[in-house]
Computed example of a mutant assay.
Amino acid sequence: MIKQVQEPLQIKGSVTATILEGHETVTNLQYTEEFDFLMAGYADGTIGAINERLEVAFVLTDDLTKDTCSTGMKHRPVSRNYPITNTFMCTYSNGLIKCWNYNFKECTWTTEEKRLTAGIAYHPRNNKFVTFGDNRRINLYDEDSKRQERVLSASDDKNSINGHTHTVTCASFHPRNTNELISGGLDNTVQFWDTRQPNAMRNISGVTIVGPGLEFTPKGTEFLTCSPDGRTGATLKIWDYATGKETLKFDGDTFKVAPLYCGTFINRNQFACGGGEPNFVRLLDINTKKNVALVSNINKPVKGISAGPAERNEFAFCAGKRIYIIRSIPK
């Protein structure tokens, strides 16, 4: 199902790349809680578990996922209150939301939404998550009860921009403020939410986000956006959360205005983002505001990134049918 291949990548910085090619387009990927597997979601609805030997150890699928596409997956953040569960949630293009146990290789529960569900975001401390998709709404779930608690959406007031007006592609919970989260999508806005209220509290405009390209900094005072629109001179920006004002545009290399489709923190200080035209991934230091590494000449646009084990300084990204595992070279 998967094999190691070579590709004439151009690499700047002290990193190495291992490239795997599978049977189908990889739409998203996520390391498991203990980093024993890299789970790859495919366009045919299957999920492959890649082990440390770079082999597919097993495949997760059932009759409900055969004619759909995996769109996103996340495991619950590990904490003292919520220890390792060996489970993760996965969303699908036909509206399915499934909880998979990868120890037992089975689905433990399923619910369904009447929409194209584009992805999922977990609360950093509580056992809650949100899903989002093409009906402009964000659904808040409690994982313990397996019930939907609230729908976050725009009001009927056409004079107020207090919610999304197009597909929602990403969301990120505030790391410290229990009830707050932000979301982005195809309507050129980032919306600020309090889960105790049905409508958004405020918003910023001018930011289109087409994939998982929205994330808070660890302290929560700022957040980053990855956009495909470079008309303003940069596609990776940092914003002040309290004021909603842009604080920085990254202009670190020759690809500074290339479209970005995804991004995530690899550790507390480094952020990886990827895109297309040209197809590339770059790793940046948030403190120095400089590039750490740049991987380019990738065969397809980069659509997903996941942070790997810190001791190996590892992360993975997907582009087309290929998965790229990037590791820092020890100094």
Rank of each mutant, 00 (worst) to 15 (best):
V130L: 09
R176V: 13
P175M: 10
L38M: 07
G274W: 02
P124T: 02
T65Y: 05
K3D: 04
C318Q: 03
A118E: 15
F104Y: 12
D285L: 12
Y82T: 11
R176C: 10
V281P: 04
S79C: 10
A57H: 06
E7Y: 11
I298W: 05
P8F: 01
A307Q: 09
A49V: 06
P228L: 12
S328K: 12
H123F: 08
T85R: 07
S183I: 05
E112K: 14
I161Q: 09
T217N: 09
E311S: 13
K289R: 15
N139V: 08
I329E: 11
K245G: 12
Y102H: 05
T108P: 00
P309W: 12
G233E: 05
M89I: 15
R147H: 05
V56E: 15
T131S: 08
K66C: 00
R125D: 11
F223H: 06
K256Y: 08
E112Q: 12
N269W: 11
I209V: 14
A307N: 06
C170W: 00
T27M: 12
T111F: 01
L9T: 04
K245E: 15
K245C: 11
H164V: 03
E149R: 06
N179Y: 12
T178N: 13
E215I: 05
L96W: 13
D157I: 07
G244H: 01
N51L: 08
E143R: 14
A49Q: 03
A307R: 11
D157F: 02
F315S: 03
Y241D: 01
L260E: 05
E311C: 10
V207Y: 04
T27W: 07
I84V: 14
T71E: 12
G213E: 03
I19E: 07
N51G: 08
E21T: 11
Q6L: 14
P124D: 01
T264H: 03
F37W: 05
R231Y: 10
T111R: 03
G244A: 04
R76F: 15
I97A: 08
T111V: 04
G304P: 00
T235L: 03
L224G: 03
F223S: 06
R176F: 14
F216M: 02
G263E: 11
E106T: 15
K303S: 06
V302Q: 05
P218F: 06
T65M: 07
T264R: 02
R312Y: 13
W239C: 04
K321W: 01
D285T: 08
F271H: 02
A154E: 03
M39H: 06
T68H: 07
E106F: 04
R327A: 02
R196F: 05
K245P: 01
N188L: 08
N297H: 14
C99I: 09
